[in-house]
Design a protein around this nucleic acid. Structure first.
Lengths: 125, 125
DNA sequence: TTTGTACTAAACCTTTTTGTTAATTAACCG
DNA sequence: CGGTTAATTAACAAAAAGGTTTAGTACAAA
C-alpha cells in the first residue's frame, strides 16, 4: 500500500458511515458497540470495526482500553492537517469572484510586474 | 453508484496526483496536457484525463472549451463544502486541550446545566 | 470454571478504483 | 484534403475497498 498522510485522511473521510462516527464522537468518547449501534441495521459489527480501524490509521481517532471496552475519541491532529491543506484554497470560496479573477489574471500574466512580486494590475473593464 | 456530495469530494481529494492538480490550478487555468505534463513519467495521459473527471464530478474543478483545448479551473463551491463540514471539528484542533476536555465533560454530563445551554463549569484542577 | 459480553481476525466475495494500450473524435493548419 | 495536436473512449487487468460469515481472544462476573 504505502500511502501518505493526507491521502489516508481524505480516504477515511470519503465514507458517510465514517463521517457519521466522527460526528458522534464530537459529543464525547464512545465504545465500539455504542458507535456501531446506529448502523447495525445496515451492516455487521465487524464492518464497523473496520471503519474504526480506517479512522484510527488516518489519525482521526484514537482507541483506548478499558477492560473489554475500547473507548474511542477524536484526535485533533488530523483535522488540523485538513484545515492546513485547505488554507491555500480559501480565497477560492471565500472572496468575491471579481477579486479572485483579478488576482488570477495578475498572477498568470507576469509580463512586466512593475516592481511588486504580486503584480497588482489595474484593469480597464 | 449513487454517492453523496461530500463522499465524492473527499474521495477525489484522497489521491496525491489529484491534489497536485488542484494545487497547480491555484495558479490559474490550465489545459489537460499542461496539467498532465508533471505526471507523464508516472502515468499516461488517459490516466490524467480520468483524474480530471473525478475532480470535475466532485465539483472541485470545471472544464471549459477552447477549440481543441479544455481549460480547467478551480471551482470554489466544493471547497466551501469541505470547509463547512470541517467547522464543527475546529475546536478539536484549535483550542487548548484543557478547554476541550472541560467542554466535553460539560456536554456529556448534562445533569443540571444550571441555566446556560453551553454549561461552562469551573474545574478544581 | 463456565458463561456472557466486547471486540477483533481470517477467509472470502463483489464492486470500485486506478492504471494500461489502442482506437476515436474533434479541431486546427498548410 | 491530409496531417498534427488535444483530448476522450473502450476494453481490459490488477489492486484496493467494503461488505459478509465464522471463528477466536480477552476480560468480567456468576
Amino acid at each position: 500500500m504505502e500511502q501518505d498522510t493526507l491521502s489516508k485522511i481524505f480516504g477515511a473521510l470519503a465514507d458517510p458511515t465514517r463521517r457519521a462516527i466522527l460526528s458522534r464522537l464530537t459529543q464525547g468518547e464512545a465504545n465500539v458497540s455504542d458507535l456501531a449501534k446506529p448502523f447495525l441495521r445496515d451492516m455487521s459489527l465487524p464492518a464497523v470495526t473496520k471503519h474504526l480501524k480506517v479512522l484510527e490509521q488516518a489519525g482521526l481517532i484514537t482507541k483506548g482500553r478499558d477492560a473489554q471496552w475500547r473507548p474511542c475519541k477524536l484526535n485533533g491532529g488530523s483535522f488540523a492537517d485538513v484545515s492546513a491543506w485547505l488554507e491555500p484554497y480559501r480565497m477560492f470560496w471565500e472572496e468575491s469572484f471579481d477579486r479572485l479573477e483579478d488576482y488570477l489574471k495578475a498572477v498568470t500574466k507576469p509580463h512586466a510586474p512593475k516592481g511588486t512580486s504580486h503584480g497588482q494590475k489595474k484593469r480597464s473593464k
